[in-house]
């Protein structure tokens, strides 16, 4: 067992490997990266190598995948990511004002991480919440719809209070 992929992660990855034909382990690369990222928050070269070794895929091919999909973080990020959708529907409904509130609340600019390393703020492309614009997504899984300045405050303080896993 490599030091990077521990038993728990390996088990998770194996579950995904099992979804694909036995000679198509490569299909699990996307999720394997996600699982490793969940643990380490962002993906370094050695993580790529670990996934490559684990799934027996050339490391360049893992790197190709990593740099193609936008949910993978290639630079250091905080423990949580807050992404504000800035696609057209959200923008028409004031997404940039929302982004401004979040920036104020966190005291950082979009793209930065709070000093305590807790939260990274980023923009998201359309997250399929257009009818509930403006929208945000936290940790790439929890959707917040029709956000307002008040809601932003509450959401952020919840994260800060560790009210999230």
């Amino acid at each position: 067992m490599s030091q990077i992929i521990n038993e728990k992660m390996a088990k998770e990855i194996d579950k995904w490997v099992a979804k694909f034909p036995s000679d198509k382990k490569k299909s699990a690369v996307l999720m394997a990266l996600r699982i490793v990222q969940d643990e380490y928050k962002w993906l370094k070269k050695e993580h790529v190598q670990a996934v490559a070794d684990y799934l027996d895929v050339p490391n360049t091919e893992v790197g190709e995948v990593l740099t193609f999909y936008s949910l993978y973080q290639q630079k250091p990020v905080g423990n949580h990511t807050v992404k504000v959708c800035t696609s057209l529907s959200c923008c028409l409904n004031g997404a940039y004002s929302v982004l401004g509130y979040v920036e104020n609340e966190l005291g950082i600019k979009c793209g930065q991480t709070t000093k305590d390393g807790q939260i990274t703020l980023q923009e998201a492309e359309c997250i399929a919440a257009c009818a509930d614009a403006p929208a945000m997504i936290i940790d790439d899984k929890d959707f917040y719809r029709r956000v307002t300045p008040e809601k932003v405050k509450e959401i952020i303080s919840n994260i800060k209070d560790g009210d999230r896993p």
């Binding site: 382990k25 299909s27 996307l30 999720m31 990266l33 949910l71």
Partner: peptide, 23 residues
Amino acid sequence: VLGAGSYIVGEETAMLESLEGKR
């Protein structure tokens, strides 16, 4: 199965590539 953040993967043949673990 889950994607990883790419609009073009919605195109059907790109989706097949993605299912194969590729870009």
